[in-house]
Write a protein that binds this DNA or RNA. Structure first.
Lengths: 232, 232
DNA sequence: GTCTATAGGCGGATAGAC
DNA sequence: GTCTATCCGCCTATAGAC
């Protein structure tokens, strides 16, 4: 077997794999992750269902691939947005990253639902998804770390019962951040996705109209909560 | 037909309807809303699928009933918790209501997913669900309104591009609240469900350990953001 | 209101030929 | 890697008898 043949085969495999995932994403949008079906994907691609099993051993493996792709796509969008403002003030970088998350979610609502919406019943996420999931959080941590480096912090102090939790979080995620700051950051991280989720999932319908401005303002408050703004 | 017979029939109908919804909730937990099936519900109840159509004209109507029940159940839990502390300080009432939301969500994760998770593909929520959905938000509004009554506000001012949005929100939801306060409140509302959703949907797994304390602390910050705490 | 029967679909997964 | 054929299951919804 020539290595040229090997290369051609490998290329074909990559292409078919990509086509399967693309069609699967289309179906995700139409029917949701719970109903993602290898058979329907195969039908749409003009293949027979059993052929797909050569690419994805089971439905859950296809789902895992889609989840990792989604986290990667979001992470890439956030990174790219951040790269454009990497030299600016932390609060500006924070805002830009949050807005990139929002934009990505609005542009890919079904993939957003896949990774931040309700868990898919019966699906157990393998550890490989956990790594991919960490990217946005890491970026936010990096922004706050740099902001705090050498210039002290300005967040609400931790109550005693959270002190050890804060220390553990700091040790795990950002050893150079004070426990109160990393705790506030984790909360802000969840709250950011609360804002995004409410908009993407329609909870803001007939409530919030000026959504970009509303979001920016809210995210500014979060920046304040994690100590990126001068105190009042 | 005697009115006694009529009463008995009506009672039977209520009971069967309740049994159908109970079984449907059980299946919601197992398979998710997207796969909720009248047939499976019927099977489990020892009925035949066509019989269910006398109670719910379609699968979506059953789903609507479950959604309204879930909002009502959450609203009742929040109201009950609030009633226990109605005489206390606003910040205390705020915290208690938020904690009630969290507790309800952890106790009913699948119903939580139904109302605050990814939308069910292909399902269009009728207007009747919108009313039921408003209850928790209304309770939070009431708490903030009372706190602000006559004693001024303490929230970040609105940027100019949000002023009209804030005025509209105030007019719609709480005419006696300053625009900046109602805007902050809507944001805090979304952020609250961000915190709850991350915990219920597993995003805090291997990240946050001391969850009740973490949640209380975060919710305290939200109370501050909506002006319920003395300024620093 | 409940039943049987039926129409007209859908799914995951595997075996074995080519 | 792709095919056919197959197993065995599932679904919504309706018609018409009782």
């Amino acid at each position: 077997m020539s290595s040229a043949t090997k290369g051609a085969r490998a290329r074909a495999r990559v292409e078919v794999t990509a086509a399967i995932k693309d069609e699967a994403r289309r179906q995700l949008a139409a029917d949701g992750a719970a109903k993602l079906s290898l058979r329907a994907v195969a039908r749409e691609l003009g293949m027979v269902s059993s052929a797909l099993y050569r690419y994805f051993p089971s439905r859950d493996d296809l789902l895992t691939a889609l989840i990792i792709d989604a986290y990667d796509s979001l992470g890439a969008a956030a990174d790219a947005a951040h790269a454009g403002v990497a030299e600016q003030q932390p609060v500006r970088r924070w805002t830009v990253v949050c807005e990139a998350v929002r934009s990505w979610a609005l542009a890919h609502p079904h993939e957003y639902a896949l990774i931040y919406g309700s868990p898919v019943p019966g699906y157990r996420a393998p550890d490989s998804t956990v790594q991919a999931a960490a990217r946005v959080g890491q970026l936010l941590i990096d922004i706050v770390r740099e902001a705090h480096r050498g210039r002290g912090v300005a967040v609400r102090p931790l109550p005693p019962e959270l002190r050890s939790e804060g220390e553990r979080l700091a040790a795990d995620l950002a050893p150079d951040l004070p426990p109160a700051a990393i705790t506030a950051l984790v909360a802000a991280w969840a709250q950011l996705f609360g804002l995004v989720g409410f908009e993407v999932f329609g909870q803001f319908n007939r409530v919030v109209e000026e959504r970009p401005a509303f979001f920016s303002h809210a995210v500014q408050q979060l920046a304040h909560d994690v100590g990126l703004l001068p105190q009042d």
